[in-house]
C-alpha cells in the first residue's frame, strides 16, 4: 500500500524560498556585475583587464593562490595524517586549532601578523621580512586556506582501514611505496577537492592580504585589492571586469577539477556475478 502524497502549499513555499534565495543572493549580483562591466561594450572591458596594473594584480593573485595550494596540499596532508593516525597529548587542541582560520576574520589575521612581525613586533627580528611583503602575503594566504585540505583529507583517511596498508606491508611494500600506491590513490579525491577549495579561497582573499601587503599597486596589490581600489577610484568597469575574470577563473578551476575527480571505477555500474 502506497500512500498518495498529500499536496500542500508547503513544498511550493520551500521552492519559492530556494528560488528567491538563489536568485537574490547569487544571480542578481552576477547580472549586476556583468551588465555593469559591459555597459559600454566589450572594448572597455578588454582594455580594463589588459591594463598593466590589472595584469600585475592577477599574476600576484595566481602566484599566491597556487603557491598556497601547493604548500597546503603537502602540509595539509601531513597534518591530516598526524591527526588521524597518531595519538599525542593535546591532540584535541590541535584538531580544534585547525579550524581557527575559519572563525578568525582575515583582517585580524593580517593585523596579528603585523603585530608579530612588524617594526615593533615581538618577532621583528625574524630573518624573512613578513610584514608588508610578499612572503607575508603568502603566509596569510596559506593560513586562511589552511583547513581545506586537512578537513577534506581527514575523513577519507579515517575511513581508510589500517588493514589496507598492512596488506601492502605483508606483500613486501615499504612504507613509502604503501603510501604512494595504496593510501594516496584512496585519498586523492579528498586532496583534489581540498586544493580546489584552497585555490578558490586564496583567489578571493582580501582582508588579510590587504592588511599585511599594504596594497602597493603593482607590487602587493592582488586582484581583489585591485577591485576594491577600482571601486574607490570610480573605475567601475575595471572593478567589474576583474570580478568577472576572477569568477570565470574560479568556475574554470571547478570544471577542471571535476574532470580530474572522475574515477574510472565509478564509470561502470555495480556488477555482481549472479553465480556467487
Amino acid at each position: 500500500m502506497r500512500e498518495k502524497p498529500v499536496r500542500t502549499f508547503w513544498p511550493w513555499l520551500l521552492i519559492a524560498v530556494v528560488v528567491v534565495y538563489a536568485g537574490l543572493l547569487l544571480l542578481a549580483p552576477l547580472v549586476a556585475v556583468i551588465s555593469g562591466a559591459f555597459e559600454d561594450g566589450i572594448q572597455p572591458v578588454l582594455e580594463a583587464i589588459t591594463a598593466a596594473e590589472a595584469l600585475l594584480s592577477l599574476r600576484l593573485t595566481f602566484f599566491l593562490a597556487i603557491t598556497a595550494s601547493v604548500i597546503n596540499a603537502i602540509l595539509g596532508l601531513i597534518v591530516a595524517w598526524v591527526l588521524v593516525r597518531h595519538r599525542f597529548p593535546g591532540k584535541w587542541f590541535f584538531n580544534a586549532l585547525v579550524d581557527l582560520p575559519f572563525v578568525v576574520s582575515p583582517v585580524i589575521v593580517g593585523y596579528v601578523m603585523i603585530v608579530l612581525f612588524g617594526r615593533t613586533g615581538w618577532l621583528q627580528n625574524f630573518p624573512i621580512q613578513l610584514a608588508f611583503s610578499l612572503p607575508g602575503m603568502l603566509v596569510v594566504t596559506v593560513f586562511v586556506s589552511l583547513p581545506f585540505v586537512i578537513r577534506e583529507v581527514m575523513p577519507v583517511l579515517a575511513s581508510l582501514t589500517r588493514e589496507q596498508e598492512e596488506a601492502a606491508f605483508t606483500l613486501g611494500a615499504s612504507s613509502w611505496m604503501t603510501f604512494y600506491r595504496i593510501v594516496f590513490p584512496a585519498i586523492r579525491h579528498g586532496i583534489i577537492y581540498g586544493i580546489v577549495l584552497t585555490l578558490a579561497r586564496a583567489l578571493g582573499e582580501f582582508g588579510a592580504v590587504a592588511v599585511i601587503g599594504g596594497g602597493v599597486q603593482g607590487v602587493t596589490e592582488t586582484a581583489t585589492i585591485y577591485i576594491y581600489r577600482s571601486l574607490h577610484d570610480r573605475n567601475d568597469i575595471g572593478a567589474y571586469s576583474m570580478a568577472i575574470t576572477l569568477g570565470v577563473i574560479s568556475v574554470g578551476i571547478l570544471v577542471v577539477m571535476n574532470w580530474l575527480r572522475r574515477d574510472p571505477s565509478e564509470k561502470g555500474s555495480q556488477h555482481v556475478d549472479p553465480t556467487e
Binding site: V115, G118, R119, T120, G121, Q124, A131, V211, G214
Partner: peptide
Amino acid sequence: AVAGGFEA
C-alpha cells in the same frame, strides 16, 4: 601601517 613597518 607605516608606523608598523610598511617601509614607505
